[in-house]
């Protein structure tokens, strides 16, 4: 499946805003309804925040990749890192709500690895029929 959009950038907190805005552009092009787009941005923000906080040892910097694909009425977003994977971390600075929040916002969430053993969070969002009434095309 060829993605519609791929972003690769350093896993830094300040770069999450770039991802969020790029998704805003994606949503505009596909006429994704704003309430749904807001949910998508929040879920992807959480997944990116997980990468920034957990993927790389403190002091190291690595890449973060976001891949978005629209197929029919379904949007899949992958957030991928090249780090140490998703593991329980007792010293986590976060509240530990990230994955629960993502699970609540997305129709489907899969945690795993790609063919190169990079850690990835795959989120699938079902877009309601309202979108196709506004813009039935796929770029």
């Amino acid at each position: 499946m060829t993605p519609d959009m791929e972003l690769a950038l350093a896993a830094r907190a300040e770069n999450i805003a770039i991802v969020r805005h790029a998704l805003g552009g994606f949503g505009e092009a596909f006429a994704v309804p704003e309430p749904k787009l807001s949910d998508i941005r929040l879920a992807v923000t959480e997944a990116c925040a997980n990468v920034v906080v957990h993927a790389y040892p403190e002091g190291d910097e690595g890449p973060m990749e976001v891949v978005a694909s629209m197929r029919g009425d379904e949007l899949t977003v992958l957030v991928r890192d090249w780090g140490r994977g998703i593991k329980p971390r007792p010293d986590s600075p976060g509240l530990g709500l990230g994955l629960s929040l993502i699970a609540a916002l997305a129709e489907q969430v899969q945690l795993g690895h790609d063919s190169n053993e990079h850690t990835e969070v795959r989120m699938t969002f079902a877009l309601d029929e309202e979108r196709l009434g506004v813009n039935g095309h796929s770029p």
């Binding site: 060829t2 519609d4 959009m5 791929e6 690769a8 950038l9 350093a10």
Partner: peptide, 12 residues
Amino acid sequence: NLTRVRVANGPL
């Protein structure tokens, strides 16, 4: 500082 993007040609 590099941000790299690839998008499908068209409205995106």
